[in-house]
Write a protein that binds this DNA or RNA. Sequence first.
DNA 1: GCAAAAGTGTTGGTTGTACACCCATGG
DNA 2: CCATGGGTGTACAACCAACACTTTTGC
Lengths: 234, 234
Amino acid sequence: MATENHNIFTSEIIDALSIDCTIFGFQESRLKVLLVKHAEGIIKNQWALPGGWVAYNEDIHVAAYRLLKDLTGVKELYLEQLKAFGEVDRYPKKRVITIAYYALTRPENYQLIPGFTASDARWFNIEDIANLPYDHGQILDFSWRRLKRKVKYAPIGFNLLPEKFTLLQLQELYEAILEIRLDKPNFRRKIMKMNLLVPCDEKQIGVSHRAANLYHFDMQVYDKLTEDGFIFEF
Amino acid sequence: MATENHNIFTSEIIDALSIDCTIFGFQESRLKVLLVKHAEGIIKNQWALPGGWVAYNEDIHVAAYRLLKDLTGVKELYLEQLKAFGEVDRYPKKRVITIAYYALTRPENYQLIPGFTASDARWFNIEDIANLPYDHGQILDFSWRRLKRKVKYAPIGFNLLPEKFTLLQLQELYEAILEIRLDKPNFRRKIMKMNLLVPCDEKQIGVSHRAANLYHFDMQVYDKLTEDGFIFEF
DNA sequence: GCAAAAGTGTTGGTTGTACACCCATGG
DNA sequence: CCATGGGTGTACAACCAACACTTTTGC
């Protein structure tokens, strides 16, 4: 892990430019965000969004991806840039403009690796997060707003669910993200009408109620549909 | 003009970081974009998006605003950041990450001032623009896509129209931005139902057909409505 | 009168919402 | 049997697209 980062620190990094990332997860029907506890520096022992620096000859998207991989060990996730935050005094003592990203991942699949700049890393319920340092609160708000909007016109939410999921899980995901309650019968009809979910020929097991059908999202079906002018609109 | 910029060039600028901006306008029922012809440098005599540098102690948003004001002389416009573009080789010889903005303005009200790094500045029909240098083509595409989306859920389009406008002008604006045709009767009903347009007690003059009522957009009405939970959805 | 755009009215189909209802499974 | 969530049906209201139609103005 330290080895993997070694060349970043010996090679030049871009001055005055950093990356910060809001990593979303979904567990126990709640929307979660991954925070790290800083091991040193100005905000030692404070929880904050994970972040890092960009190497001189590294795409910013690659840099963001590298940070996430080092932190979560996860290789497959959804990663999208939000925007740059560049107020003069957002970072103390030194001028640092940060490029904010957000990522969607499946918490259960991965072990968190705090890494050498963080002493701890943990998932928090998004509603419980308060008092983040710097402008991280602002970045988190912006991330959530973007997620709320984007989830309505692109099927990115699936990146937060396990491979195989039930319709209720999907519904609860939307409810958690959008902070609304949805009608079950209407939700399933709406979703099914999109033809994006492929039944798994498999059902829940060991549940004390009628076992639900499992579905998976098929990106190829989605691509095919979008090619033909299909528009996902939740 | 040179005076106004003088302190930018004597003061430190942030290395490896620039700003580029897509400025949209609307003239003769067409969606336009403002390009500048570079007076010097690698792309001398080529048309490109206007851009510039950020001073060490200047908010990036302020920097973007300053660039626009120097170029167009306009003080009131809609300005929003898109995102950072940071591929390693997007700019030749030197690593430069650029923060892209887009702006909406009313072309007729302002004189273009090319400024000292540009020998010319002109409005182009957006469909006619091709072969922009660097990744400016990509930035332009991204800008237009964002505009297309945003215009559907926020009333930003009004920034492209004169103070007072007719419903047909508004319709043609949406048609130009979205590249679609709209039904006039249905469009006017849809818009009017939002209660965002205030009639001006004034009509078109000198037109060879029935004079249309002029309307203006009232931001205060909009703020009031959004406070009460109103959602603009075109 | 004619052309051109301003506006109003109507109608039929689609969609969304609310809610009643039956089904399967474990305890 | 009950509780719990799975899953279907229905009916009313709201909305939307299409298009016919009348109005006003300049030439």
